[in-house]
Amino acid sequence: MAITTTPALPVSLAGRVPGLRRLRGHSGVTWVAAVWVLLLLLAAVAPGLLASDDPTRLRPSLVLMPPGEGVFGTDQYGRDLYTLMVHGTRSALLIGVCSTVLGLVVGSAIGLVAGYAGGWVDMLVGRLLDVLMAFPGILTALLIAASLGPSTRNLVLAVGLALVPVFARVARGQVMVIRSRLFVEAARSNGFSAFRILWRHVLPNSLAPVVVLGTINVGTSIVLAASLSFLGLGPRNEVPDWGQVLSTGQPYMATAWWITTIAGLVLTLTVIAISLLGDSLRDRLEV
């Protein structure tokens, strides 16, 4: 048998940062993370409940006001930053979660088949993934987005497909580890069909690192989508999402630090919260 190198398993963000590792397992911290995510969900479903202002109202007199004017200050058009963040949640989460789920599902499926089948199938898929991985994700996403045209759906597609090789890689490596485990051999000697073995034994046991990778990726996807929007390949929404706030605020960093800082902070907190929840989920699942 050829020696196959499996890619390093992704560790969750909380597992990688030493300080955060200490936070793990603290049920209090997990609760804070859960509350944060619940707040986000509320903002996505009913933004009016948290911020009653109109996010699109331009106030030329209040351009680039620091925090104090409103809660978070205003942006270059005089829009209230707090209102913007609340109303942008839906689009940010939609893009982040949907594209991650897309990348995860398609990538895992490819990785599962390649890893389990082995032989020439694996060889072919492996090389193809190598080629895709050679491009930075943003380039792939850019290509797809440019050829599909600007819309939310296409943005999700572009970001999701750009993530496919990453997930496929991890899933494939994990499947190859699980495939050689004795209980899979036991299932095979029991005369179970290949589909059943894949679906009932290999997949559930391979999924954990993929899901953890997914939780980290939600944030990355939001930022990636923002970059595409910044380049004019995103949807023309009246209400900007977090990524757009982040990227359009960038030129004003020197004079109005709060725009990028607030947007970045919200994004970071969201990534950490989802990652912590992912971790506790993983612990709950006894992986």
């Binding site: 209980f183 051999e185 036991a186 299932a187 000697s189 029991n190 034994h201 559930p204 046991n205």
Partner: peptide
């Protein structure tokens, strides 16, 4: 025809 393996833990699906 069935098999009983050496490593009982490894041969049982942990989930």
């Amino acid at each position: 025809m069935q098999v009983v393996f050496q490593d009982p833990l490894g041969s049982l699906d942990p989930r």
